[in-house]
C-alpha cells in the first residue's frame, strides 16, 4: 500500500478512504474530478487524521463535513506488529465515528454495530441475514467434503468444492492436484450445490437504484428490485449481487453479495452508475 494523497491544505470535495492502489478508488476519484468536483484518495491513517469529532452537549459535530466513499481494507491475515495493528484499529475506530456521524453523504456508511457489513464469508449466513430463504447447504471443512445427501429443487445438481486458500473451485468428486490436500494446498474448503454449467448475472446496487450487467432479457425475474432489498437488509449502499439462473431463465437465486465490487463489475454498469454516484455524493 503506497502512501495516500495526504493533503497539505484544506480539503473540499469527495474523500475516498481506500488503498491508494485500489483501481475502483482511482476510477471514482478521476470520474468525480472529470465531473468538475474535487476528490482525493486517503488511506486509513491519513483519513483518520483529517477529521475531528467534537461532542457538544447532545450533539456530535464532525469537521470537515465532506462526502466520503469508504473502501476499507480487510484486516491483515497475520499480525506482524502489535503497535501497527493497534494504530490501525484506533484509526478505524475514529473513522467509524466520523463516517457514522457526519451529515455528509457516505457510501458504505458504517452500521451501529460496526464497520463491517452483514455480509459473511458464509453464503448461507449472508442469505439468512438478507432474509433470503432456502439456499443450498454449505460445508466448511479442513478437507474436501462430499455432498451431504441429495439436493432439493433449485439448488443445482452438482456439488462444488472451493479451496479457500487457492480460491479455485472444482466439481465433486473431481479433485485435481490443486484441491488434493498437499503442502501447497491445505484448504480450508467450502462446498455447496450449484448447477453443472451455471448461468450468472450480476446486479450492481447503489441505494435504491440497480443495474444489471448483461443485455439478456431478464425483466421477468425482477433482479434489480430483489437486489436492492437484499443489499438494504445487509446495510450496504454500493454492492454487487451475483445471481445464478436456471437454464430456462425462469428462476434466479442470489449466490454472493460483494460489498466491494471490483472495477470490472462496476465498469459494465458505469453509464448508469457513475452519474448516479455523483448525484448521491453531491446532492
Amino acid at each position: 500500500m503506497s502512501s495516500s494523497e495526504a493533503p497539505g491544505g484544506a480539503l473540499s470535495g469527495l474523500v475516498v478512504v481506500a488503498d491508494p492502489e485500489d483501481p475502483v478508488a482511482i476510477e471514482v476519484r478521476d470520474f468525480v474530478r472529470d465531473s468538475g468536483r474535487e476528490a482525493t484518495i486517503l488511506d486509513v491513517f491519513d483519513a483518520a487524521q483529517l477529521f475531528s469529532v467534537t461532542v457538544d452537549g447532545p450533539t456530535a459535530v464532525v469537521e470537515p463535513a465532506l462526502p466520503m466513499f469508504l473502501r476499507l481494507p480487510g484486516p491483515p491475515l497475520r499480525r506482524i506488529s502489535f503497535d501497527a495493528e493497534f494504530q490501525l484499529n484506533e484509526c478505524l475506530a475514529h473513522l467509524w465515528a466520523v463516517a457514522a456521524l457526519t451529515p455528509a453523504p457516505v457510501i458504505n456508511r458504517p452500521e451501529p454495530g460496526g464497520l463491517g457489513t452483514g455480509v459473511s464469508a458464509s453464503a448461507a449466513l449472508t442469505e439468512l441475514r438478507a432474509g433470503v430463504p432456502g439456499g443450498s447447504p454449505e460445508i466448511f471443512s479442513s478437507r474436501p467434503y462430499g455432498p451431504p445427501g441429495e439436493p432439493t429443487d433449485g439448488q443445482g445438481t452438482q456439488w462444488w468444492v472451493q479451496d479457500l486458500d487457492a480460491w479455485t473451485t472444482r466439481p465433486w468428486p473431481e479433485l485435481p492436484d490443486a484441491l488434493a490436500p498437499s503442502a501447497d494446498s491445505s484448504g480450508p474448503y467450502r462446498a455447496r450445490w450449484s448447477a453443472p454449467e451455471p448461468l450468472f448475472e450480476s446486479v450492481v446496487v447503489l441505494g435504491d437504484r440497480a443495474w444489471r450487467s448483461s443485455p439478456a432479457d431478464l425483466d421477468h425475474l425482477g433482479l434489480e428490485g430483489r437486489s436492492t432489498e437484499i443489499v438494504a437488509r445487509l446495510g450496504l449502499q454500493l454492492s454487487a449481487v451475483v445471481w445464478r439462473l436456471s437454464p430456462d431463465l425462469a428462476q434466479a437465486w442470489p449466490v454472493v453479495v460483494e460489498p466491494f465490487p471490483d472495477v470490472e463489475q462496476l465498469r459494465m454498469v458505469w453509464l448508469g452508475l457513475g452519474p448516479q454516484l455523483v448525484k448521491v455524493l453531491f446532492p
Binding site: 481494507p73 480487510g74 484486516p75 454495530g113 464497520l115 459473511s120 464469508a121 458464509s122 460489498p259
Partner: peptide
C-alpha cells in the same frame, strides 16, 4: 445480535474481506 459489535460481522478467520483481500 448479529450487529452488536464488529466481531459478529467478521466471522473470525472467515472475515468478509475488504477490497484488498478480494
Amino acid at each position: 445480535k448479529d450487529f452488536k459489535d464488529g466481531k459478529d460481522n467478521f466471522d473470525g478467520a472467515m472475515a468478509p474481506p475488504g477490497p484488498a483481500a478480494v
